[in-house]
Amino acid sequence: MTREIQVTFDCADPRALSLFWNDVLGYELPPPPPGFGSWDEFSESLPPELRNSASAAQDPAGHGPRVFFQRVPEGKSAKNRVHLDVRAAPGLQGDERMAALEAECDRLVALGATRAERHEPSPPMGAGHIVMQDPEGNEFCLD
Rank of each mutant, 00 (worst) to 15 (best):
M1F: 06
T2S: 15
T2H: 10
T2G: 03
R3L: 14
E4Q: 13
Q6L: 03
Q6W: 12
V7A: 07
F9C: 08
F9N: 03
C11N: 09
A12D: 09
A12M: 11
A16C: 04
A16R: 14
L17R: 07
L17H: 06
S18D: 12
S18N: 02
L25H: 03
G26S: 02
G26R: 06
G26N: 03
Y27V: 08
E28H: 05
L29F: 10
P34Y: 10
P34T: 10
G35S: 11
F36I: 05
F36N: 04
S38K: 00
S38T: 11
S38F: 09
S38L: 10
D40Y: 00
D40T: 08
D40A: 13
S43V: 01
S43P: 06
L46D: 04
L46E: 02
L46A: 08
P47V: 11
P48G: 05
R51A: 09
R51L: 11
A54F: 14
S55A: 15
A56S: 15
A57V: 10
Q58D: 00
D59S: 07
H63Y: 12
G64Y: 04
P65T: 05
P65H: 02
R66H: 04
R66D: 14
F68Y: 07
F68H: 12
F68G: 10
F69M: 06
F69D: 04
Q70F: 14
Q70T: 11
R71M: 10
V72F: 11
V72T: 14
P73E: 14
G75E: 12
G75H: 04
G75L: 13
A78R: 13
A78K: 12
A78I: 02
N80P: 01
N80A: 13
R81V: 14
R81Q: 12
H83C: 05
L84R: 05
L84G: 00
V86H: 12
R87Q: 15
P90S: 00
P90R: 05
Q93T: 14
Q93G: 09
Q93V: 08
D95N: 09
E96Q: 12
E96D: 13
R97A: 06
A99P: 01
A103F: 01
E104I: 00
C105L: 08
C105I: 04
D106E: 15
R107V: 07
R107E: 08
L108I: 01
V109G: 01
V109I: 14
A110M: 06
L111H: 10
L111S: 06
G112I: 12
A113S: 11
T114P: 00
T114M: 13
T114I: 01
R115S: 04
R115A: 08
A116W: 01
A116K: 04
H119F: 15
E120N: 04
E120R: 07
E120M: 08
P121M: 00
S122V: 02
P123M: 05
M125N: 14
M125G: 04
G126W: 09
A127G: 08
G128D: 05
G128R: 06
I130A: 03
I130R: 01
M132T: 03
P135S: 02
P135M: 03
P135E: 02
P135A: 07
P135W: 09
G137K: 00
G137R: 02
G137N: 04
G137S: 02
N138W: 06
N138A: 10
E139W: 01
E139D: 11
F140K: 07
F140P: 01
F140H: 06
C141A: 07
C141K: 03
C141Y: 09
L142P: 09
L142I: 08
L142T: 02
